[in-house]
């Protein structure tokens, strides 16, 4: 049977299904930012690392507020009931365990919960740490949204051990890819869900880490 990998919106929509009403959630840059578009039917409070509590829908061209941006410096709106704090308080929210969930993008995730998402080597001039290390260690749950394999070469990004510099060790709880939903367990990644048409054999062939079914 053929399978069609989820596109980036599809991954975001799949994550959104698992976020219950009432959670306080930080969304990273990239696929995670799209998650809020699919949570319009529930009251979920979205946090941006630059001090916004209560991100609303994206603005139309006509109602852009130049003083209001998210972590990606994209223009946003506020929900009714939003709050604004300064940067140290915003990261107290992240580091202090106040977020029910953080969703980040990544280059690689390992079966022990390690995440690598800021550099592809120790010495390249791109050093895009930003707020990821604080969010990764501080949120109650860390989920990762990413493609299962590299676009070029097709190598697995779901690893027994990360090959890139780490963002944090042992913090990832779940990974949502274009092929499956994986949960980090002491015995390997437990497969919670697969896209229609995907088989255990086909998923194993695209995954370097240990996969288990419960």
């Amino acid at each position: 049977m053929e399978f069609q990998p989820l596109d980036r919106d599809g991954i975001a929509a799949r994550i959104a299904r698992d976020i219950p009403e009432g959670w306080f959630v930080n969304l990273g840059i990239g696929i995670p930012t799209k998650v809020s578009d699919f949570v319009q039917d529930r009251e979920v409070i979205f946090h941006a690392e630059n001090g916004v509590i209560g991100i609303g829908p994206a603005p139309t061209e006509a109602n852009i507020n130049p003083y209001l941006v998210n972590a990606g410096v994209q223009h946003i709106t506020l929900i009714t009931g939003a709050a604004l704090v300064h940067h140290a308080d915003s990261f107290a929210i992240a580091r202090g365990g106040h977020l029910d969930l953080c969703v980040l993008g990544a280059f690689e995730v390992a079966e022990n919960g390690d995440i690598a998402n800021w550099a592809r080597s120790d010495h390249e001039p791109t050093k895009q740490v930003g707020g990821a290390m604080d969010l990764a260690v501080g949120a109650q749950r860390l989920w990762v949204a990413m493609e299962h394999t590299n676009k070029r070469g097709g190598g697995s990004r779901i690893r027994t051990a990360c090959s890139y510099p780490l963002t944090a060790k042992g913090v990832v709880k779940r990974v949502y890819t274009d092929l499956a939903v994986l949960e980090v367990t002491p015995r390997g990644f437990a497969v919670l869900d697969m896209i229609p048409g995907m088989t255990r054999e086909a998923l194993r062939a695209r995954t370097e880490a240990t996969l288990i079914w419960r």
Partner: peptide, 19 residues
């Protein structure tokens, strides 16, 4: 500038920078 050795960089996680 960093790659050419003209600028020293200290990379600090954003929350640590704020704190």
């Amino acid at each position: 500038q960093f790659a050419k050795g003209q600028l020293e960089l200290e990379i600090v996680p954003q929350g640590t920078l704020a704190e």
